[in-house]
Design a protein around this nucleic acid. Structure first.
Lengths: 244, 244
DNA sequence: GAGTGGTCTAGACCACCTG
DNA sequence: AGGTGGTCTAGACCACTCA
């Protein structure tokens, strides 16, 4: 057993080397420059001996590091420190109400419009339905401490959620309603920026052309595209944070 | 052994039930509404018997689903389907050059400015250094097919990367240089939107006040904040996609 | 062909939390 | 107090891919 591992054992706990300890140690070795970018690191077998634990434990540590883009692994070739800076970051996408309440602000909601109309060409394409089909269109506004926080424009596929037709969305936003009633589904997010239209500026109490942070979310269930929604938030007030 | 598992076995492979099969089956049950939002699902022990595999395998499947926010787990309480729509999405943050070349466009680079100057108050705070300390400031432009794609404003902490002082950044952008020479480190990303200043508009060949998608990235090594960088991209041309 | 990572097992102990 | 998930082990077989 090499001395540095022995030190770890003495300094650390008596419990067996955990995969988390190994993760930290690998990160340390990379950050300290001991294992350089692009270089191959020892195999699982060797590491398990050095750390004095089973290969399964080493495997979990290295696997998780590979999942987050720190390491690259290939059978037979081995494991190396990632040289590309393509990093996988974890992004938490909260529901609006929670986001606001978590910051200790009062959440407010106002329905602006709910209509059932034939899908515009662009929307029918996104929802993968015929152009003539009716879709439910909901526009609403979310407030933080009575200040407009986010504008929501949503199209719902009635074939996927027929109950939405009878839902007024007067009191509860479509987001919350969907979360409560619909099973968890696959999502795709597209982030971009746009200039506020005159209408958007009026609703959000900002100036026309002010920068908006735009989140477009598509949601699928087993057989349908459920909904597509765009959230517009004033860029001056909105930040989305991700940490690895 | 229950019939549905038997079916799986007959329809699928002869190999033992893998954690991936279980993940898919759990997702299916959730999407199909068999396991509803907020409801508790069977424990690992019970599931391992139903799937005819070891508890370890079930554990891995459920753990990964919990990691991505689909399930919530607590000891003793059990595992339930997430009721909040707080979803963890995986975000791939590529280096600019790769991003452009992956789309089959030509990558171009131009250094605008490289100075060494006392850190402005805002930057020294972010880099966790004294205000009087010198920092390296680099401004450069990235092109896709000769069209301005992204404006980069970077501050480097000389204490963390002394070699950066001697680097001209004439030919190679600081991003690529850092990736090649510095060990992988911890990162934080903040996404927001802003209006282009007159100067930014000129450089990016857009109109003043046009919406910009802004990525701010901070990078740490073991002992220092290495760098803080802001990437400005025209919102009309830039999209960042994340999928679970 | 052979070495690496990818996965599964059966069993075990433990930390945490709820009832 | 007891059940649940969290983790570790030792061993095994396999898939992939490099030389």
């Amino acid at each position: 057993m090499p001395t540095d591992v022995l030190e770890e054992t003495v300094l650390g706990s008596i419990r067996p080397t955990s995969f988390q300890t190994i993760k930290q140690d690998v990160l340390h070795k990379i950050r300290a420059g001991i294992w350089k970018s692009g270089a191959y690191i020892p195999g699982e077998q060797e590491l398990s001996e050095k750390y004095g634990c089973s290969r399964t434990t080493v495997n979990r540590a290295l696997r998780e590091l590979a999942d987050s883009g720190v390491l690259e692994r290939r059978r037979k070739a081995g494991t190396k420190v990632s040289s590309t800076s393509v990093q996988a970051a974890r992004l938490w996408i909260p529901i609006v109400r929670q986001e606001i309440e978590d910051r200790g602000q009062d959440y407010g909601y106002k329905l602006l419009e709910k209509t059932i109309e034939p899908a515009p060409a662009a929307i029918s394409k996104i929802l993968s339905i015929e152009e003539t089909t009716d879709v439910i269109c909901v526009k609403c506004l979310h407030y933080a401490d009575d200040i407009p926080y986010q504008l929501e424009e949503r199209w719902l596929n009635p074939a996927a959620v027929p109950e939405a037709k009878d839902q007024s969305f007067d009191e509860m936003g479509p987001n919350e309603w969907l979360v409560m009633t619909q099973p968890v589904a696959d999502m795709e997010h597209v982030f971009t920026a746009s200039n506020a239209t005159k209408e958007q500026a009026g609703l959000l109490d900002i100036k026309e052309k002010d920068a908006l942070f735009v989140i477009e979310r598509r949601t699928w269930s087993e057989h349908h595209t459920i909904t597509v929604v765009r959230f517009f938030s004033p860029g001056a007030r909105y930040k989305m944070v991700s940490q690895v």
